[in-house]
Nucleic acid binder design. Structure first.
Lengths: 247, 247
DNA sequence: CGCCTGTTTGACTCGCGTCAATGAAAGTGG
DNA sequence: CCACTTTCATTGACGCGAGTCAAACAGGCG
């Protein structure tokens, strides 16, 4: 396997090495194959195209590209963004290992957004036609896929609420907690995070400026809630973060 | 059919009368049955439960309710909202005739939001298990349903971008244009609209206060772009509204 | 070493939220 | 049918949080 798959600084990219088959991937519990029998997993294995390494800043697909596949992130991280009329990009999500990208392309057979690697990433390509065909005889897979899409809708709506009504501090808190949860889901630390994205990306995603993001992180650190060291963040008091949202 | 189905002031509720079967419904072009053969439509007909009238302010489902069905709006209008920790509600969408509600419930078999009628509405209930079963042998239906969900994701992301970055005026413009498009899709006027929701609902949805919504509408009227009369709105210069978003 | 990108910090500005009051419309009960 | 209440909408005065502008700093890389 190509060594480029594994950025030297990333701590959680071991999946890239071992996962030649879904059944062996340590992300299988949170990715597509969830709840499949082993026979079924083999069939899914057969249609998935692996080993597509993506360098930092390389595009997985671009807005307007014909839609042919959805993609599972095996290692690394992606951001997904829309380019609006003015040419500015709006980030609508970050995708971490075990998560599925590209579901918004089904609507009209073209990708409605662009996906780009935040760091060197390993991706599983899942051709959609084949997947759809497979669901003919695999109701569980079909159901799981629908659930993934439904989850995406729920998540996006959470974000809508967040952006519509919450302060800068609350938005940052939600992002940190989200990254924490997703880290825990991969059996990694829930309190020590490495942010794969820049402050600019965070601001873009949360509808804030770089300056506000920076100031907010500084303030949270001054209040003893987090410790920030460049892109490393430690959540010293996750409860305090949660409490900010209860109000 | 019960006369309560038809609010006297609504101008576009004739579908409620004629649509006893999907094939006869004048919304069939934009609802689920799109792209189905007539045999298939009959089968879909068989699982759909109709004639569920919903009074203003009555709930179609509530957050946390077990998820059993998705719903097509046949007449009237719904709003969908989340209740956040503090007990405040955040509206995440308005649903007009021909649109499908409840897709976010698939993820974990409970509704992740609440849906309530803005005015007396007619609803088609589509039991999800039966629908899913039907898609076994109807790939077109399956595809169309996936497209509906995918569209929902795309739309929500548009909204995310909007709330994250745009001014009050731009948000209002987007909403007006969206309502205009959806009105045109139902072969109604694209320039004369009747808002089914209150100013408060609009503000809640767009992340603005009632006052800001009111002031913004007033200003748009003063600039000759729209004419507002209570809940009736005429778009005098739709191009001007579009132009606001290009920048 | 010097360039470039990303991050932090400070001073100033402004759009929108908040508070408050008034008016219009719709629903309610006698 | 009319008084009363309640809800919704509009308008004004004021303050704050986050955007803007600007400058300095750190780190990575050729």
């Amino acid at each position: 396997m190509d060594a480029r798959f594994i950025p030297s600084k990333a701590s959680d990219n071991s999946a890239a090495c071992s996962a030649v088959r879904c059944g062996d991937c340590r992300l299988s519990g949170i990715c597509l194959p969830l709840a499949l029998e082993s026979d079924d997993i083999d069939q899914l294995d057969n249609i998935i195209q692996r080993g597509r390494p993506l360098q930092r800043n390389a595009h997985l697909y671009r807005e307007g590209d014909p839609f042919t596949s959805v993609y599972a992130v095996r290692a690394g991280a992606l951001k997904v963004y829309h380019s609006s009329d003015g040419g500015r990009e709006h980030i609508t999500g970050f995708y971490l290992p075990g998560e599925i990208v590209g579901l918004d392309g089904i609507a009209d057979n073209r990708h409605g957004s662009s996906a780009v690697a935040l760091e060197t990433s390993a991706i599983c390509e899942i051709p959609f036609e084949a997947l759809d065909k497979l669901t003919d005889r695999m109701p569980k897979l079909r159901r799981h896929f629908l659930q993934l899409m439904s989850r995406e809708i729920s998540d996006d709506r959470q974000l809508v609420s967040l952006l519509g009504r919450n302060s800068a501090t609350e938005r940052i808190a939600v992002l940190l907690l989200s990254l924490s949860n997703r880290s825990a889901r991969r059996h990694l630390s829930a309190t020590r995070l490495r942010l794969p994205m820049s402050r600019g990306d965070i601001g873009n995603y949360l509808g804030l400026t770089v300056e506000t993001v920076s100031r907010t992180l500084t303030r949270l650190q001054r209040d003893g809630i987090i410790v920030v060291d460049n892109r490393e963040v430690e959540l010293c008091d996750p409860q305090a973060l949660s409490d900010m949202l209860a109000a």
